[in-house]
Design a binder for these strands. Structure first.
Lengths: 155, 155
DNA sequence: GAGAACTATTTGCACAAGCAGGTAAGCCGC
DNA sequence: GCGGCTTACCTGCTTGTGCAAATAGTTCTC
């Protein structure tokens, strides 16, 4: 096995670890948010991304990138949330192809209610992962990252 | 904003970064493997996990954990791969509830053909991510992880 | 050693995702 | 200011997923 193979194997191992930790956190958040607030992780992510915007509004495409979704999936996701009264669509004045989405008061309320659970679940899962020898190093590394501006995080 | 909130915000930011990098890699691998070998990432993961087993066989539940899938999804995933002749099922002799899956020669062949593309895509995507200021720290951290034994990686 | 409790796998169903194709709106050169 | 190209969003269709219930086999208890 040459140097090339070693490097590839190291990357593959890192990717397995990353995927494992991601899966652990994702499914824990999914269960918790679904059970308590009937929200999926993507839905929470969208609400959270919206709440972080200056004017609390975003265009569909921005939303799609923030949630790492295709535009068709974004359309339906926004429709679901709109049906539940958590956000509303309205046309851009300047570019009438564009559609803005904006949190409603209920949306902000639900987000405020869900955030503590989200954060607590995240903390609990990270703590749990820190006890697994194969995940612990990545958990430590995550902790030491510089804090990332949210607007860029999912670019 | 108190110390509690700061800690929660750091964890949330780390989670966003982790999710962003995961999404980037996952979709790059998905596209590449799908285009060249009609394999999804999970399917590749399963073949790869099987190839790494001593006797090249695993039970459904092990497979489910290795792929981070529910057991029903695993059933259907194995069925798909079995239909394509990439692996085969056979009953456990000692515990007849259990079902072993085993790579066929074609399965090993396809895996051997797909692995270089997988590894190259992974490398390219990590390189790309290292150029994004918000992902670069995590990429570096990944690189410095200890190599994880594959059998445990997705536990 | 018969029945209860548990485990491994499969199946029915509902739902969310992506892709490809459609429509409406803006932009650009002439 | 009229075609042609591009962009933004929505819809039809197919596929993969999870949950809950069904089935088959094992183990434990008395």
């Amino acid at each position: 096995m040459g140097i090339q193979d070693d490097a590839a194997e190291i990357r593959a191992g890192g990717w397995r670890t990353l995927a494992a930790l991601h899966g652990l956190i994702d499914s824990a958040l999914e269960k918790a948010l679904q059970a308590e607030h009937r929200l999926s992780v993507v839905e929470y992510t969208v609400l959270e991304a919206l709440s972080r915007q200056d004017g609390w509004h975003m265009r569909m495409q921005q939303l799609a990138r923030a949630a790492a979704l295709s535009s068709s999936a974004t359309t339906r996701l926004v429709s679901r949330l709109e049906d539940r009264g958590l956000l509303s669509r309205y046309l851009c004045a300047d570019d009438r192809r564009g559609i803005y989405t904006e949190l409603t008061p209920q949306g902000r309320e639900l987000l405020a209610a869900a955030r503590p659970l989200h954060d607590a679940t995240l903390e609990a899962t990270l703590t749990e992962a820190a006890d697994l020898p194969e995940l612990a190093p990545l958990v430590r590394a995550l902790h030491d990252l510089e804090l990332i501006p949210a607007a860029q995080a999912k670019a």
